[in-house]
Design a protein around this nucleic acid. Structure first.
Ligand code: MN
Ligand code: MN
Ligand code: ZN
Ligand code: ZN
Lengths: 141, 141
DNA sequence: ATGCAAATGAGAATGATTACCATTACCGGC
DNA sequence: GCCGGTAATGGTAATCATTCTCATTTGCAT
């Protein structure tokens, strides 16, 4: 399903700002972007989109299920394209790099923990804060 | 170790505002409190402490290891007494109730996930967002 | 008791996000 | 393709949590 179709499916008009924002997610760019990131990238590429619109559109896309919002440590929300495959994150405290992983055992143990206590799970967030120790981290110790 | 000793160990002067805040955590109160919660509870009990001081003291206690800071969904930080036993949280989306749990398998799988990818773990946060389905939830569906 | 560095608290400042609202851009029907 | 109505946009003001500033107060060691 392409971006235009995505928008229609979500009941959202296909406007220029929305298409521009959607294009940012999934074009070689980092997968995980804050509102500020999105705003600056659009400005840099000559696409003028108001900051208010960026915030609005990101929230709309989240509600439409196109994007996923994350609350890492720190004050700002971070978004990524929802490609249907749930995963969790390791965040490098030195360089901010974000690595994704999926562990079926962790997932099932979470379900069990909640079910055992009588909860009906909506979703969950698991963030591991760590340091890169491999050479890939530009700020490694 | 009592509160006064705790403060000294942390290299913090034993001041009235600090003792009042510390007393809030561990007196039948909810274990998990935001800065605003703390501020209002102090006001309600006639103990006037400035909001700026509340924020300052909470951050100091966190850095001293006396409190743990959580970033649940939503904009505000939530704190709880650090009693040395790590645990994760289930948050009811209906009533805000917070339930604690610990799963050794989840913990070890996390360590392994990070180690396998060359990360040195600092800490992690795991929040399960759910609905109470047992009668205990005052807002249950 | 005295002195002084550290802590407090009222209010200003900040940073992220949202609300307002006048202007502009989609989209369906001529 | 042109029009009209409605939804979307974007500049700016407002909000909310949190931090900063700095004059005043307090804890604590002498
Ligand atoms: Mn991701
Ligand atoms: Mn807890
Ligand atoms: Zn790194
Ligand atoms: Zn509940």
């Amino acid at each position: 399903m392409d971006h235009l179709t995505h928008l229609k499916t979500a009941g959202l008009k296909s406007t220029l700002p929305r298409l521009k924002v959607l294009n940012l997610f999934g074009n070689g760019n980092e997968r995980h972007l804050s509102a500020e990131d999105v705003y600056k990238k659009l400005l840099a590429s000559g696409d003028d989109v108001g900051l208010a619109t960026v915030y609005r559109v990101l929230t709309q896309f989240e509600q439409a299920g196109l994007l996923i919002r994350h609350h890492f440590e720190g004050d700002k929300s971070v978004f990524e394209l929802n490609e249907g495959k749930h995963h969790d994150h390791i965040v490098c405290l030195q360089c901010g790099r974000i690595e994704e992983f999926y562990d079926a055992t962790i997932e099932s143990r979470q379900k069990k923990a909640a079910a055992d206590r009588g909860y009906s799970v909506h979703d969950h967030s698991l963030y591991i804060y760590a340091d890169c120790i491999k050479p890939k981290c530009p700020n490694r110790l």
